[in-house]
């Protein structure tokens, strides 16, 4: 991987965002709406529910913040590719001395920035509006964030591969793919709430261990490091598989001339 190429590709993305502030709507506005809806639902439930309910309602706010880290990391990878499609710049990039690793490396950095901006805003607002401090998770926050970023990158690579393979008509997958897994990811409810068959699906997703871990840590103050280790192991598998899928699809795209079709549409 060439750090110079990664830097150049990230620079292009930064120029894009500083040139068009309206893009901040996507990065800040929707997560804010999400936080406000779930936050005030939390307030309402806290005021009206029986105190022996076995579930801390503030979990929901933590879930909103952590889910957004995964979602923004995935978006960073998938939208990065689409930006080149929309601006008819795809051939210029792929005809330049840029390797798949350079390209993916820059999408990871962009995904990291996007997740960082959104989660910082959400973390600050949740403290201000709902007295929920995400830093109550302590040191466990670091592996939580790391695992969500890596899983988001893997989903982003798979999303991009699907878009390349199926063409512009599949662009909506850039936003849809994370929501395919959300019902099984134990974001807002524990894995045990799912039917037994679907619990296995949940256990195969690294992010479900993070959301379970968040609830556990907020409940007991203890961190289940074994589960986080399992999530990291799963992430290694997902990232490797996504890498193989991405490279294979790019090879297929070169064989079938899919990149030039994208460029001419």
């Amino acid at each position: 991987m060439s750090l110079g190429n990664v830097q150049a590709l990230v620079l292009r993305y930064l120029y894009l965002y500083t040139r068009t502030p309206i893009r901040a709507v996507e990065l800040l506005f929707w997560p804010l709406v999400h936080l406000l809806v779930w936050g005030y639902l939390t307030v309402f439930l806290q005021e009206n529910m029986n105190s022996d309910f076995p579930f801390k309602i503030t979990y929901l706010i933590g879930a909103v913040i952590l889910w957004d880290i995964l979602f923004r990391a995935q978006q960073g990878v998938a939208i990065f590719f689409l930006e080149d499609v929309w601006s008819r710049n795809l051939l210029n990039i792929f005809a330049a001395p840029v390797t798949n690793a350079d390209y993916l490396g820059s999408t990871y950095v962009v995904g990291f920035f996007r997740a960082g901006v959104t989660s910082t805003m959400l973390g600050g607002l949740s403290l201000l509006l709902y007295s929920f401090n995400i830093f109550d998770l302590g040191l466990a926050l670091l592996p939580f964030i790391f695992n969500l970023l890596v899983f988001g990158w893997a989903l982003g690579m798979i999303s991009t591969a699907l878009i390349v393979r199926w063409g512009p008509a599949a662009e909506t997958l850039a936003w849809a793919v994370p929501f395919f897994i959300q019902p099984f990811a134990a974001v807002y409810y524990p894995v045990s709430a799912l039917p037994v068959g679907l619990q296995w699906v949940a256990k195969s997703l690294p992010c479900s261990y993070v959301f379970e871990g968040m609830r556990g840590t907020l409940n007991t103050g203890e961190v289940d490091w074994a589960s986080l280790g399992l999530a990291t192991g799963l992430n290694v598998i997902y990232l490797a598989a996504a890498g193989v899928i991405f490279v294979r699809v790019m090879n297929t795209a070169r064989e079938k001339g899919l990149l030039t079709k994208f460029a001419s549409q």
Partner: peptide, 13 residues
């Protein structure tokens, strides 16, 4: 002629 550079960026960028 079938490609463009990103339209949101300035020429020098």
């Amino acid at each position: 002629t079938y490609t463009q550079l990103p339209g949101n960026l300035r020429v020098w960028q």
